[in-house]
Design a protein around this nucleic acid. Structure first.
Lengths: 349, 349
DNA sequence: ATGAAAGCGCTAACAA
DNA sequence: TTGTTAGCGCTTTCAT
């Protein structure tokens, strides 16, 4: 039966209604609070009669356990936080975050944990978040898109809260994380782009303040080896469509002879593609272009983008499992897990 | 000072470290727990010396209040839930949800409330969610994208939890909500499309199980009046790109002479547009097409979509303010607020 | 202005 | 198997 069908409350001497407590249930069932608690927690050593009487009483008075009280005494809340630290705009655009959330939720749901997604937007948020996390209402956290030097990281570390990061900022120390091999994947797709015969391959490199961004650049450099020309790299702040446009414009100005492009994300690639086509370049004939994410942007481009598929749902699931393991004490919170991400080749290069 | 810089804990006789409590602070400062509590809550009637000693003690032992304990005694948690009830895929694609989240977070942040985003994906989630909500860890909720007959709605109603809906499912009774005038906006943009001289205007109508979906259809019917032809409406389940494609294909088959289209969302419009162009129709010359949302899809289309701008951030903000008002008892929880949404006209019609 | 003490609703250790 | 009791960490009368 769904808990939402209960009637609520208990009559007070003064005529008002009040939320039922274990005590009300105990009185109604004619047993002690201890016995009620045992039934609630499914423990042994409860007679069938007592159990039946208590179940009936619970339904009758519409008892719903108070989790704050339970958290207080148990020192745990059966809730896991997922912290998203993103500047305004990006949260709306980033196609991966939603999938990570869903993956994490699925895994936690199986373990009967509640996922609570917490967003850190301003510095004020960060401070409040730190207080919130330390309050005992959250047993552990998954941290998405942290930067190096992120105050959230410090706060979590200070609190000693079980945590798993999605991605791998350099300064999380021994903390557990799940990630994709950004560098390897970038290297692979750049190599593949090179193999289509391009001679002047550039990159619009977004989010270099994040491990994902800098690793993708590193992989790009790896792949090009001696052919690498720093003039052909344009850095932009965000993984966004408009930053892709801006980056491509700058690159085109500096190196009109460019014939290949690796963009840090599909959104960036889409922006670059539009600029390229407006400038009269044919894709893939004149310029080959590849992205990263395999998000809905990739399929909407004309031609569709060759890109790298990120297993975002799996990332969320793995992160949740990692936190759960830490909670069960099966894991010191220092594991790393790196997921595969295949290249998917389409028409843009 | 940021609370995350505190050292943590207090030494135990047995050599272990333990989280500091008010009692530790009281002992360290040489006062009683009551006085500490007064300082914590910024109450009057505390001497300057006591206050100074307590502040020092708090810093020294690294005290962080336990919110579970505070919630228990205060019967409130300073946290608001935002419930997203979406099937898998859509959460990832819907451009509005992220903006609503950000808007709500901003408003709650100003009031020093923590936003906790809770996602309901499976029926199991819903049940767990109902238990979670009833636990006293959440003071109120914002409900996004509920459907008619949604079990979440029932659960909230049973719990008597302060709630505000984003959107207006028919069966939320007197509950507070904030919404846009879907019907009016749909009527307006359809009228405008009609004014471009189209004779055979169709609609790909998504999500008719939601108030937003059915209202947009109603507005479309309003605008067409006697010209309305049910043959020109194709219903699809979701506000998605692929459903837009499917809907357009069906429509094209049934009515090859179609020369105008209203799509329930920009994503749907984008799908329809691609199908139309693949079928050799020119837009806007042969077929004029308009969408809804003014999301990033709209600008990426070629030509860019004429559409209706949804004030998603404002919606989130207004919903948060409504819940906050209920919490302060300034509002019985029955208010409605309808936000304007302007038509933005671009090249697709 | 401050301290003492009584709970908030729950669980768990100890008796019986 | 069950009842009793002592807290979990905090706020809040009620005295002083």
């Amino acid at each position: 039966m769904c808990s939402c069908t209960y009637d609520e409350g208990v009559d007070e001497p003064n005529g008002r209604r009040r939320r039922a407590t274990v005590k009300d249930v105990a009185i109604e069932a004619g047993v002690s609070r201890g016995t009620v608690s045992r039934v609630l927690n499914g423990q042994r050593y409860v007679s069938d009669e007592a159990r039946a009487a208590i179940d009936a009483a619970i339904a009758k008075v519409g008892f719903i356990p108070n989790r704050a009280a339970r958290s207080l005494v148990m020192q745990s809340s059966q809730a896991i936080g997922l912290i998203v630290h993103e500047p305004h705009s990006l949260f709306v655009e980033d196609p991966n975050i939603g999938a990570i959330l869903l993956g994490a939720n699925a895994a936690l749901s199986d373990a009967d944990y509640q996922l609570s997604c917490l967003i850190a937007d301003t510095s004020r948020d960060i401070d409040r978040l730190a207080r919130y996390l330390s309050g005992g209402l959250i047993d552990g956290v998954i941290v998405v898109s942290a930067r190096v030097g992120d105050p959230i990281t410090r706060a979590i570390d200070n609190l000693g809260l079980p945590a798993t990061f999605v991605g791998h900022p350099r300064d999380i120390g021994e903390a557990a994380y799940v990630a994709i091999d950004n560098r390897g994947a970038a290297r692979e797709i750049t190599t593949r782009l090179k193999a289509t015969g391009r001679r002047r391959i550039g990159m619009v490199a977004a989010a270099l303040d994040r491990d994902s961004g800098s690793d993708r650049l590193a992989g790009f450099v790896d792949a090009l080896g001696a052919d690498f020309d720093p003039q052909l790299v344009q850095s932009v702040p965000l993984y966004s469509y408009s930053d892709g446009q801006a980056g491509m414009r700058a690159l085109l100005e500096r190196a009109p002879d460019i014939d290949g492009l690796f963009a840090s994300s599909d959104a960036v690639a889409a922006g670059a593609l539009d600029v390229l086509q407006s400038a009269g370049r044919r894709v893939p004939e004149d310029v080959g272009i590849v992205g990263f994410d395999d998000s809905s942007w990739a399929l909407r481009c004309e031609p569709a983008l060759s890109t790298v598929r990120q297993p975002a749902t799996e990332l969320g699931r793995a992160a949740a499992e990692s936190v759960l393991r830490q909670l069960r004490g099966e894991d010191a919170g220092t594991g790393a897990r790196v997921l595969e991400c295949p290249v998917v080749w389409r028409g843009s290069a």
